[in-house]
Structure formats: structure tokens, C-alpha cells
Simulated assay, not measured.
Amino acid sequence: MKDSARKKEKLPESPAAPEDPEMAEIKAIREKLCDMHSDIKKVMEYSNRLRFETALECSRKEYSNAILSHLYEDIETGLEKNMVKKCPEKENCRSAFSALLQRNAGLIKQGRVDEDLVSGNREKLQEMRCRAPYNKCEQCFSEVSTLFTKQVNLMRSMRIYADNQGQKPDILALEPGILMREILEPVSNPQRLEILRAVAFETKSFSAFSEITGLRGGNLLFHLQKLMDSGLIMQQHERGDYMITEKGFKILQSLNELYSSLQCSPLQIPAGKKTGEKEEIRI
């Protein structure tokens, strides 16, 4: 009995039945269709975002051109109406004032107005004022200053320009706790930042994030949950792909703008150079 039991234990397992060729072909077709559907969805998402950004840029240009046309008309009307009527230097001054004001107004066509450019134009106006030959020149400079201030206030209202003083109330109103919890802490981790960047223009699956970050299972889920709890990404449905939210995209866009502005900053210290070291000037 023992020998027969041992023989039964050693009997080889029966080989698995070969897969039906038709079923295998159907399975392969399904996989191909899934891949095609995924590719089409990515292309549509990317093209929709490009279309939206192009339309937004066109609207911004049309809006800026309309405002610029109004400012140019305001310059000519204001100078004609309020400058001293009888003055031997009127035409020369008017030409110089108009050129400075038009140059300053033209800054609104930029997405963001550099404070140094506005300050430079303000200093040029002050230099012209110091060289004024007559007491009655104050009337003309008062009008130019008024037009200049209107332009700067318009830039502020369009939120394309803010000097340090103008930003003071906003900066003092920042809540450190909320700022850390809602913005800084969620993106302070390199893997979470990689995840956020990966879904900027297309959806991603859990396995795709795993390949991107090198994280597996619970570790990856922890970071995904952190981003979802902070409202930076969302899952389309249970076990579905992940996508970026409006809040997440704005934060990522702001980080990109901040990084770009720091790269262009004249105060930036090159990598590997200590503070206080003189940089070699090359011609």
C-alpha cells in the first residue's frame, strides 16, 4: 500500500491544455485595441491642451493690443490738452514725452512686466524733469507723471506688474501653516514632484508611476495618496488612471516660472562657486 501511495505521489502532472489559437488571436487583438485607445486618448488630451493654450494666447494678444491702442490715444489727448500752450520747446518736449510713455505702455504686451524696466522709465522721466529749463515746465511734467502712473496702475490691475511695495500686503497675508500643508510639503518630495510632472499633460497609471519613480506597492501608494489628499492629482475612477487637477497644474506652472526667473537672476551664484568669489570676466 505504501509503495502504491508513493507511486501516486510521483505521477507527473498532466500538461496544460494548449490555448485555442482563435482565443489567443482575440486576446492579442484586444491588447492592441487597448494600446491604440490609450494612444488616441493621450493625443487628444495633448492636442486639447495645446488648442486651449493657443486660444488663450491669441485672446491675450488681442486684449493687449486693444488696451495699447487706448493708451496711445490717451497719451496724445492728455499731452495736447494739458501741456503749456505757448512754449518754444513744446514740440520737442511733446515728442520726448510721447516716446517715453509709449515705450512704458508697450510693456503690457509682455506676460510679466519687469520692475527694473518700469523703474528705468521712471528714472528717465525724473532726469528729464531735472533738466527742465523753465518754471512752467512743472505743468507739463505733472501731466506726464499722471499718465505714467495711470499706466503703472493698469499693469497692476492686469496682474502683470507688481513692485516690492505693492506685494507687501499680499506677502504679509501669507499663512505659513496653510502654505506648508497645501503647497510646499506635497511637492517637497522628489518622487511626488516627478509624479506631478508626469501627469502635467497626460494621464498615468499606477504601473507607469512605478517605472518613473522606482517605487513599488505601498511606498508608491503613500505618495499618490499624499498628492490626492492635497488636491494636486485625482484618480479618474477606482483603479483608474491618475490625472492632474487645476490646483496641481497651477502649482507646477508657478514652480516652472519661479525656476526660470531664478535662472535669469543676476544675483544667481553659479554651481560650485562660493559667495564672495569673483567671477572671471571673459570677452
Results as ranks from 00 to 15, higher is better:
13 E>R: 12
13 E>N: 08
16 A>Y: 04
17 A>Q: 12
17 A>R: 15
18 P>M: 02
19 E>Y: 05
19 E>T: 14
20 D>G: 03
21 P>Y: 06
21 P>S: 09
21 P>E: 08
21 P>R: 10
22 E>V: 08
22 E>Q: 09
23 M>V: 10
24 A>E: 13
24 A>P: 03
24 A>D: 07
25 E>D: 11
26 I>W: 08
26 I>K: 15
26 I>P: 02
27 K>L: 01
27 K>P: 00
28 A>G: 07
29 I>M: 10
29 I>G: 03
30 R>F: 00
30 R>D: 00
31 E>M: 12
31 E>R: 15
31 E>S: 13
31 E>P: 03
33 L>E: 11
34 C>E: 15
35 D>E: 15
36 M>I: 13
40 I>K: 10
42 K>N: 06
42 K>S: 04
45 E>T: 07
46 Y>M: 14
47 S>G: 04
48 N>T: 05
49 R>A: 04
49 R>C: 01
50 L>R: 14
52 F>K: 13
52 F>W: 05
52 F>S: 14
53 E>F: 05
53 E>M: 11
54 T>S: 12
54 T>M: 11
54 T>W: 02
56 L>N: 13
56 L>Q: 14
56 L>T: 10
57 E>A: 14
58 C>G: 04
58 C>F: 08
59 S>D: 13
60 R>Y: 00
